[in-house]
Design a protein around this nucleic acid. Sequence first.
DNA 1: TTGCGTGCAAACGCTTTGCATATTA
DNA 2: TAATATGCAAAGCGTTTGCACGCAA
Lengths: 153, 153
Amino acid sequence: MPIDSQPCSDDSAGPAPAAERVRAARILDAAGITPTPQRVEIARILLARPQHLSAEQVLCILKQGELSVSKATVYNTLGLFAKRGLVREVIVDPSKVFYDSNCSEHHHFYDVESCTLTDIDAGDVDIGGFPDAPEGKVVDRVDVIVRVRSRQG
Amino acid sequence: MPIDSQPCSDDSAGPAPAAERVRAARILDAAGITPTPQRVEIARILLARPQHLSAEQVLCILKQGELSVSKATVYNTLGLFAKRGLVREVIVDPSKVFYDSNCSEHHHFYDVESCTLTDIDAGDVDIGGFPDAPEGKVVDRVDVIVRVRSRQG
DNA sequence: TTGCGTGCAAACGCTTTGCATATTA
DNA sequence: TAATATGCAAAGCGTTTGCACGCAA
């Protein structure tokens, strides 16, 4: 089980933070989520671009900023975002959940050595029909996970 | 997050235990695993038929038998079996790993409410080609997980 | 004032580890 | 005898929960 201690960094070279915060706050409003400072900051980080971050990574990036956000709030907020459809939980590693800010339909490569996710465009994978869901059940979501590793691991 | 406290039971109405143990011991031998009593018992339970059990469920079934097996041994053994290809780890729930005794290629329905896995035959899902694995990487395994829930969840 | 959001610390649950004992080859 | 396996309890780690405080409607 690889331990990824890759240092985190908020290397978003995008618009000025203030503008990003406004954008983030609008997204929260649209999702019916009260845009508190902590939530706006987390949204700003996570929704800046399509990416896959664990709660720990989000917490680490937050620590580099001015606003202090507790661990519990990070977990609560990420859970809330996921419930409201702002991000998607990606479950590929038993030791942690990744939050994916790319909400369009797509799939993933998962590098089991670096614990890193990479998107696979939905158009690049055809999934032929699969059997009907069990009686009384409806399909919630289909995940395709392609686990990769270094040659001759 | 649904809590499944479904009681466990070793309802294998198959061959007599003694014969099953012999079979299990042979499988362990073939995999180069020393067939100790604990390992044989776990193999007997898990490999009796295609099924998906969590470590906790295995532990629970073991408690109903005569042989006592510690929690640590269950985890060590399941991890060893997975490493040697006797079972497959199925990661669909952040809170626990399932061990799948069906090693032929196939995929899964996962009922997020009952935390239950059901096989989907590999032949029933066509996966059109996906992009090449990232540079220097090889595909280890492709998982398709169809998450299902009750109608109008 | 009523409710919601936050921070903190403690609790939780699954899994792993350390070490002494027991078993296997 | 040398190496491996087991049991037990404790430690780890990601995540959740309980509760008091703070702030907005």
